[in-house]
Structure formats: C-alpha cells, structure tokens
Design a protein around this nucleic acid. Structure first.
Lengths: 143, 143
DNA sequence: TAATTGTCAACTAGATTAGTAAAGTTTGCA
DNA sequence: TGCAAACTTTACTAATCTAGTTGACAATTA
C-alpha cells in the first residue's frame, strides 16, 4: 500500500482546518505555509475536498476554506476515500469477468475483503479532532 | 490501496504451486495456462519469487518451479512483501526530514502505523494452504 | 476599480505498470 | 553429440499515474 502525496497533503490540510475550526475561512496560502505543501498543488486538492462537501470555500478578500462539519464529525475513512479513492485493496483487473473463473482469484478476493474491513475499521475510529495538536497534547497529558 | 497485477498474478501462481505441492516441478507455462496469466510476464514474477527464496526452480526438460516450504508454512504477508514491497501504508515523501517538523505529519504517521499493523495481522493469519481449492472445499463442507 | 482569494483547464517531466521480445543458459534424453 | 524443454536475463515499449506548474478567469470586498 502506498500513501500518495495527495492523500498526505490533503489530510494535513484538513487537520490544519480542524485546528483553525471556528475562526472563519483560512486561506489556501496560509495552510500551505503551515503544512509545508506546494501552494498550487494544494489548490487542486482543496477543490476536490470542496466538491466532496468536506469543506466550504469563500472567495474574495478574507476568503478561504473551512470544514463543513465539526472536526469530531469527520472521520479519516471519508477523507481518504475522497483523496485517494476507495479504502482497502482494489484489484485493478481489466479482465475481471475472466478471472472470476479462476478459483485462486476468487479465494484472493476474500482476503482482500478482510484487509479492507480491517483497514476501514481503523480509519473509521479516528476523526480529524483526534489528530489536532490540541487534542493530542491533551492525550499525552492524560498519560 | 491497490493490488497490482503483479501481486495478484504472483499470489495466484503461488496458490497454484500450493495445489501441486509434492508433485515435483511445475512449468511456468502450465501455471500461466491454469491461472490465466500472461506467460512472459509470469516468468519475471517467478524469478522474483525464486530470488526471495519462496520457490525453487529447476531447468531443463521436466523442470519447473516448486515451493521451498510447505504451503502451511508460507504466509501471505511474506508473499505480498516480495511481490509488492512492504505491506501497509508507505509514505512516499521525498522531503522526509522537513515534514517531520510538521505536527500533522507526525500525527498521521501514527495512523498509518495502526493501519499497517491491522493489515499485517490479517495477512499473517493466512497461509497458502488456506487458499487452495482442496482446503477451501473442506472448509465449506465443514459448515 | 483594484486587490484578494478561489476555480478551472491545460500542460509537463518523470516514474510506474503491464507487458512483449529476444538472446542466452542449463539439463535430460535419444 | 545434439536437440528440445525449460528457466534466466536484459532490453524495450505503450499507456497510465503522479506531482506538480502555469495561466486565464470569476467572485468578493474595501
């Protein structure tokens, strides 16, 4: 498995917005600077996040981006689905129909499905608030 | 996550060898025909499996490939590591040093690690024998 | 209207994927 | 010995994906 820079950058941006949550729109350039993301590239990632409804964007001076929901209500599994496509193993078989007749292929599908479920479980148990600096320093204090 | 055809083909080949286990070397062409894999492509995959020590190859007439260990002793996690590189999320960050200073990036690493552990657990609990037709039909009979 | 900010579409270099192809090596057998 | 079966190795390719960059445009506010 491999996390693309798009996934990593997108999540960092969302975490940034979670940390700024409630303070109005945050400019793309600000996020890019704080999170060390190429600004023009981040632009495109934010558009995807907006199209998926995870964030809302406002134009013009003092414009920017903000989370559509509270950080607690945005789970990582949803973010990653938007940024990298469906979570879990995806078989890229252009001859799907034919390989269904191969027994080993059917057996493998069950394994991929198990992996998918396990992965999804982890990503479904974490939300954006869990990853913010505030929340995390509270947790470490609690230890 | 995405399973490349190399991973899928390689595992199908290994399952095939598990089903033929104990009957001597199996020719690449035979595996390819049974498992619906492009023969020339499979050639390369088998070499990788041999270099990793999972199979043994013998040349000449009546030559072919066979598992180095019993199917029960070969876990999927090992096969997939050989075929697709390390299991679990891999961050492809060419600026690793810099991003370590970004708090969100550090937080994400912990999540990726959790996913890796969960994935590995599933793949470590399955071996090649579990995926053979014989074993599987026994299981379904058992229900 | 000018400045600020997001939106959209097009383009690119480089890497990866999924093969194909060709030449060479080893071995068993007649 | 010589042929054929089989694996080995290297090189090549087309198509796709990744990680951006660039530039024109739209909307908003002061």
């Amino acid at each position: 498995m491999r996390i693309s820079s798009r996934g990593e950058y997108g999540l960092r941006a969302l975490i940034d917005l979670a940390e700024q949550y409630g303070r109005g729109p945050v400019a793309c350039a600000d996020i890019a600077a704080r999170q060390q993301i190429p600004e023009n590239y981040l632009t495109q990632i934010l558009i995807a996040l907006r199209n998926a409804g995870l964030i809302q964007s406002t134009r013009g001076p003092q414009g920017g981006h903000q989370l559509s929901r509270t950080p607690q209500n945005i789970r990582l599994v949803e973010c990653l689905s938007v940024l990298e496509g469906p979570v879990g193993p995806v078989i890229t078989d252009r001859d799907d129909h034919a390989s269904m007749n191969v027994p080993s292929s059917r057996a493998l599908r069950e394994v991929w499905e198990e992996v998918r479920v396990a992965t999804e479980k982890v990503l479904d148990s974490r939300n954006l608030a869990d990853l913010t600096e505030v929340r995390r320093s509270q947790n470490s204090k609690g230890k």
